[in-house]
Amino acid sequence: MNNNSIPTHYLSRSSFCFLAIEDADDDTFDGLHRHDFFELIWFTKAGNDSVVEIDFKHYSINDNTICIITPGQVTNFDRTLEEGHVLAFSKELFNELMVETSAYKAGMLPQNLTETSLEPMRILTTLIKQEQDAENRFQLMKAYLTSFLIHAMSSVIETKTDDEDRINKLASVIEQHYLEHKEIAFYASYFNISAKRLNEISKKVRGLTVKELITERILLEAKREIHFGKLTFKEIAYKLGFSDAAYFSRFFKSQTGLTAAQFKESTSSFKIN
């Protein structure tokens, strides 16, 4: 397998970095890339055709759209069409600050913010920028970041039902355990409900059964590994829990309609179409 890997971005000098989308250099966002840190993106302004690509899927974005990119996710957007803020957190800092909203440790696809959250978030971004420039009051910075995350997540949570919140938490649990636990019973026991009930909620919220969500996560990991090109197809199969490469090959083609080589070729461009 050719090593045609997507570049990985790292935090250069600290556990946190704040920057404006419009002030970033070309290498920061342009082209498919991934991070070894968490990234919260607040698009304050978006163009008519603005999209963000996350894990090989395209999502429309509007003014005041927010998303969370997790370590390892593949992302891309054309920064010339958008304005906004990017908050980059080390894994340790993000997990510390997000302890009360652990569901979002699995990331968050683009969501629109409510009007009530915008003004406090604008004020907090100014304060965060000031503290980053000062470089000497990190405890105060953490307080501002915690407040910012509370406002941002509360804005999103306001629009969610209990079932949606439960499925967000399910996504986080699947993220942690999908390699070793592929059976629905494990996840149902986590929520102390029956497998049938969890499937009903999952179908209602996501349009997919729990098994399909697990399959979707396995398939995503397969796509990442195939594109990154660091493991052989056989090694990917074993990593994902398949007994042999031939079985994994049939699984991948049945889910995508493509062979691994065809998929790699289809995603060889690092630009949004």
Rank of each mutant, 00 (worst) to 15 (best):
K105Q: 14
A103R: 14
Q111E: 09
G107Q: 07
E83A: 14
N95G: 12
N95Q: 14
A106Y: 06
A106F: 06
L97T: 01
L87W: 01
L93T: 06
S102C: 06
S90L: 06
Q111N: 07
A103D: 03
L97A: 10
Q111A: 13
K91C: 15
V99T: 01
V99W: 02
L81K: 07
V86I: 14
M98K: 01
E82A: 10
R79H: 08
F89K: 11
A106L: 04
S102Y: 11
K105A: 12
L97C: 08
K105W: 07
L93D: 09
R79V: 01
S102H: 08
F94R: 07
K91R: 14
T101M: 06
A88C: 14
V86E: 02
A103Q: 09
H85L: 14
A103V: 00
S102Q: 07
E100S: 10
N95V: 01
K105F: 07
L97M: 06
K105E: 11
T80E: 08
L81E: 05
A88R: 15
L93H: 12
A103Y: 12
L109D: 00
A103H: 08
L109I: 04
P110C: 12
E100Q: 09
G84L: 11
F94H: 11
V86N: 05
S90N: 08
M108Q: 06
E92F: 11
L87F: 13
T101L: 03
L87K: 02
L109P: 00
R79K: 15
L97W: 07
M98A: 12
N95P: 00
V99D: 04
A106V: 00
E96H: 09
E92L: 14
L97S: 09
L109H: 06
Y104Q: 02
R79L: 05
H85I: 14
L93Y: 11
S90Y: 05
P110T: 06
M98I: 01
K91W: 05
E100C: 05
L93F: 09
